[in-house]
Simulated scan of single mutants.
Amino acid sequence: MQYSYRALARTLSHCHPLSRLRSFEERLGIVTFTLTLLLAMTHPLWAHEFKVGDIEIVHPWSRATPEGAKVAAGYLVLKNHGETADRLVAATGELAGVTQVHEMAVDANGVMTMKQLADGLEIPAAGEVALKPGSFHIMFMDLKKPVRQGQSFRGTLTFEKAGTVEVEYSVDAMGGEHDEHAD
């Protein structure tokens, strides 16, 4: 039996590994799979979450401040994945002279009050606490510089059991609610 060059080339082309990628749908499927895999692998690089012990800190953020402001607030969600309660007992912010854990509440006369939580903020076992506008928050006082939209700043959170973790606060627009992460 004698093979012609063309017949041999045609036979070999069907064996080539890339010969399966003839249809647009197959190529699109490979590209989609590859991009999905890359996205999944790089998620930790752009995620804005931090963890220490059983505590997960979800998306710390703040609002921009006007020129000359001496205070700013920090917001985030604390998730306790442990079987025992923990407590946020201290915080720092690189742009503040003093940082405290605060609660904002309305008293019996309808007056809004803000006070430092001297004993810290409890995070229940297998539960979460949202630090958000009008509620619990981190208070940054004696600001060393304005907080600018689009920038970020570092700080730490210290928990009674889990220990201390460094976090980074993203800064949103002045006066706006952080829609994407406000729960």
Score class of each variant (00 low, 15 high):
90 A>T: 06
85 A>T: 12
92 T>C: 01
40 A>Y: 12
78 L>S: 00
53 G>W: 01
30 I>G: 00
48 H>C: 04
76 L>I: 05
105 A>D: 10
101 V>A: 01
33 F>I: 09
100 Q>F: 00
37 L>V: 09
122 E>I: 08
55 I>A: 01
28 L>G: 02
50 F>G: 01
120 G>P: 10
42 T>G: 00
78 L>N: 08
27 R>Q: 15
58 V>M: 05
30 I>L: 15
38 L>T: 11
100 Q>W: 02
69 A>P: 12
109 N>A: 12
125 A>F: 11
62 S>A: 15
85 A>K: 07
67 E>L: 10
86 D>T: 08
119 D>R: 00
125 A>N: 11
121 L>I: 10
115 K>N: 08
43 H>N: 09
38 L>K: 10
52 V>W: 02
30 I>E: 12
28 L>Q: 13
32 T>C: 03
88 L>T: 06
112 M>Q: 13
123 I>C: 00
98 V>Q: 09
29 G>C: 10
111 V>C: 00
51 K>F: 05
78 L>H: 04
113 T>H: 03
34 T>Y: 06
70 K>I: 14
62 S>D: 04
62 S>M: 06
87 R>D: 07
68 G>L: 09
66 P>S: 11
46 W>L: 04
109 N>K: 13
69 A>C: 10
37 L>M: 14
85 A>N: 11
74 G>E: 02
100 Q>I: 13
98 V>G: 00
104 M>K: 09
86 D>Y: 05
52 V>T: 13
41 M>S: 06
101 V>T: 04
78 L>T: 07
72 A>M: 09
121 L>N: 03
42 T>A: 05
42 T>I: 14
22 R>S: 12
116 Q>I: 15
55 I>Y: 00
51 K>P: 09
72 A>S: 15
22 R>H: 13
54 D>T: 15
27 R>K: 15
46 W>E: 02
22 R>P: 03
31 V>A: 06
88 L>G: 04
118 A>R: 13
42 T>Y: 03
99 T>C: 02
24 F>T: 15
79 K>H: 12
26 E>S: 11
35 L>G: 04
127 G>M: 07
64 A>H: 08
102 H>S: 01
35 L>R: 03
44 P>D: 02
46 W>F: 13
106 V>I: 15
75 Y>A: 03
68 G>N: 14
73 A>C: 07
27 R>D: 11
55 I>W: 00
24 F>Y: 12
91 A>C: 13
126 A>H: 11
94 E>Q: 12
98 V>D: 05
81 H>G: 05
70 K>Q: 15
40 A>T: 11
53 G>K: 08
54 D>A: 14
74 G>N: 02
44 P>R: 04
47 A>S: 14
